[in-house]
């Protein structure tokens, strides 16, 4: 059986309004998906994405609140500015742009995160594993190799 693509999921702790969805993400994520809950998408340091890429993740998904619904007023917008820019850079050095995805969830969305993850997994499957940037070297705070 071919290996499932590895997805690093960064989720802002506010964006899943429905308790059932949050519970699913917290407890029932499959092994190939790793959840990192952040206080806000704006807290996602590009460093995390870089580490995920270098560590061999096939895709990175960032789920946050819709614009205007950010818990911290403008956090999601700041995140988009920062991470889209970083994504362009990743694309330039050879990490396919499609592998980093933003999902903005509306308050009323229920059962959407599962569907989005499944669709993303399917697309990553089609793209195949990402290996060209895998260094297996941990990059720590301040840019030093740990």
């Amino acid at each position: 059986m071919p290996e499932k693509p590895k997805i690093a999921l960064f989720q802002c702790r506010w964006c899943l309004y429905a308790p059932a969805d949050q519970e699913w993400v917290d407890t029932q994520l499959p092994e190939n998906i790793h959840l990192t809950k952040t206080p806000c998408t704006g807290r996602i340091n590009p460093l995390y994405v870089l580490n995920a890429v270098q560590g061999g993740a096939d895709g990175v998904m960032i789920s946050g609140c819709l614009p205007e619904q950010c818990h911290f007023k403008t956090g999601n917008m700041a995140a988009r500015r920062q991470l889209e820019e970083f994504n362009d850079f990743l694309d330039y050095i050879g990490y396919d742009k499609q592998r980093v995805r933003f999902v903005w969830l509306d308050l009323q969305d229920r059962g959407i995160i599962q569907k989005q993850l499944a669709a993303f997994e399917q697309e990553l499957d089609d793209l195949g594993p990402a290996s060209n940037l895998v260094t297996r070297v941990k990059v720590a705070e301040g840019g030093q190799n740990a």
Binding site: Y17, A18, Q108, D109, R110
Partner: peptide, 13 residues
């Protein structure tokens, strides 16, 4: 404040 819907079963919460 809000009604949410399960997109598959159309149950309402």
């Amino acid at each position: 404040a809000e009604i949410t819907e399960d997109p598959d079963s159309h149950q309402l919460f």
